[in-house]
Design a protein around this nucleic acid. Structure first.
Lengths: 195, 195, 195, 195
DNA sequence: TATGAATGAGACTTCATTCAT
DNA sequence: AATGAATGAAGTCTCATTCAT
């Protein structure tokens, strides 16, 4: 990621920043060019079209997210610890990079997402594997991994949005509580106690 | 809502359907007009501008959602029953009306949402009150109502999306399980057991 | 003019008032309708089209102007007195009815005027006759009546505009002076003295 | 003015020509584009909007007019000679450039003029100074310079219009006569003789 | 007569994309 | 590689006019 041409990166980052404020369609290429400090035509040396730019930005950011998730995982930690680390990795990534969260949310809810579906998502596979492991090792309830993945990820996103809105000060203690809620709900142990 | 002028309703419903497929900006007014069976200019008798149309559609749908939520609540049910009913009301509404879910998700993640923020949301207030009641009556953990609301609502949306993607068949049993997970996580009882 | 249908007159007057503020093309028929207190369709009972409305308004006002000019002429006054009266009639009419002046100026400088040219103008004939009389009786220099007419009328309009701009307070004395200038310039007597 | 981009100038000149025939609102941007030999969008590289185009054209032409007036003034001529030169400069400019006269007349009588009022007019100042000089040197009657300016300028315009209508052949002799009339009316000498 | 909802052609303007330099 | 002027299709919106009531 670091060896991207300077300008290409500038274009991607400019797009990211502008989309947060203006949305996809409120962000003309000329605006991206200006912010990136390049000419409009230059963008077309690096990207085939605007759609292509959006898609590449999506991939670029998804790789970043994967990196963040990967780095959060210590091999010698317990599963629960790794779950907590995973959740906080997402939460921290999104709150530290609100424009990324904003971009993702716009992307997945746009017609773009439909076209991107075909591309196999490394991140999805990674999460799928993580939750499958939890189920197989008897630490998570036997629910489809996709569901668990969606619940956990969706939960982190929800919280990051609450934080982003700024109406609430979310202390670390609050967050711990929320993840605990989530873990309690998903873990096999609770399930057994309640039954 | 039922006494809206025929044409106005047709325009709103056409917009809803088209936005799901094409997104806001992939849906020109001419397309809305055609689908609604009116002339392009006619839309401007009912709506000041395209933005105004989007906003009114948002309000219109939010009223529908409130209606659905309200109808789900039986006064003589227990709090937990009402919580389940609430969650299923959302889930059912979104899965039965995928275009509404799609519209909401596009809306809240677009620059439109910023402008709509100032408008006090009846739905938010309703949910806030519901969760506050749960906390005050000692049935829910003492977490900020906004957070609980976001978690529960976000959770229903997440599931509805999983369903919408169609990759998974979510049996009622699966759903019950998920809501149970959610409830277990949020309820005071579980909290006590675990501590 | 007084026996015009109430509504027809209301439409004409509304148009006049609105054109002053917004110009021809900033004055949609719907706006005229609203100000006149009638429905948009009603205008088309009285006028064939917008152009037709403009033309009829022009005629209507021109008749008014003729009336004003006619009434200013006392048969037993001297020619110079009648000239002064004529000039003041115009000046007073325009300053008392700034929207009329504004309308005329817009009209004669618009493509409408081209089409109206064919219509013989009673006002022009009246002025032509007046100045011809002055020349024939040896009181005015032998210049083409059209020129004299244009000079005198244009002069009154110029002054009315100065007044309308409001930057200057034109006392009656000032005006007398200006007309005197005009008369001095046009009269045969001055011509002789200077030669 | 000469170093304006080729295309910008073509757009301005095309607008001028078309406005004469069709008026402001009968001249769509597409028509301007066609006549100027550029694409519609190109106009918007040079002008922010149609209004902006009209305003810039107004400024552009006013600069031309100032140039013409300036060039007519020989420092070593008498005041009367300079007055005659000034008047003829206007008259000649307007009759040689009927579309400019037409544009000015449309402009000053349109709602545009209201917005342009705030801009201090170099031409007005120039004329004001010229007439003030005449008054102070005792060669013109002591009337407000604005009035004298309006009278002289309005007079030249009136004549140019008579010429433009084409009904009359105005020989140089005729014109000399008219300016003489004007000068006689405005000059102090005549004033003294008559009193 | 009067209404005003409906029409749809056409205006202004934007912007993704190209291409000569 | 980079530029940015130029393009023109397409979008939003206006408004003169019609017509069923």
């Amino acid at each position: 990621m670091e060896n991207l041409a300077e300008k290409k990166k500038a274009i991607l980052e400019s797009t990211l920043a502008l989309v947060k404020v203006n949305g996809f369609h409120g962000t003309p290429m000329s605006m991206v060019a200006k912010k990136a400090g390049v000419a409009a035509g230059t963008i077309y040396h690096y990207f085939e079209s605007k759609d292509s730019l959006i898609f590449e930005l999506y991939s670029y950011l998804k790789q970043q997210a994967i990196q963040v998730v990967r780095e959060s995982q210590k091999p010698d930690a317990t599963y629960q610890e790794r779950f907590f680390a995973l959740w906080f990795a997402f939460y921290t990534y999104y709150t530290s990079n609100p424009s990324v969260l904003c971009f993702f949310e716009q992307f997945v809810n746009s017609p773009y997402a439909e076209k991107a579906k075909s591309i196999p998502s490394e991140l999805d596979e990674l999460l799928h594997a993580f939750f499958e492991e939890g189920i197989n090792s008897g630490q998570l309830r036997p629910v489809a991994p996709q569901i668990l993945s969606m619940l956990a990820h969706g939960n982190a996103i929800s919280l990051a949005k609450v934080y982003g809105i700024g109406k609430l000060n979310l202390a670390t203690a609050d967050l711990e509580l929320v993840v605990q809620i989530l873990w309690d709900g998903m873990s096999q142990k609770t399930s057994e106690i309640n039954s």
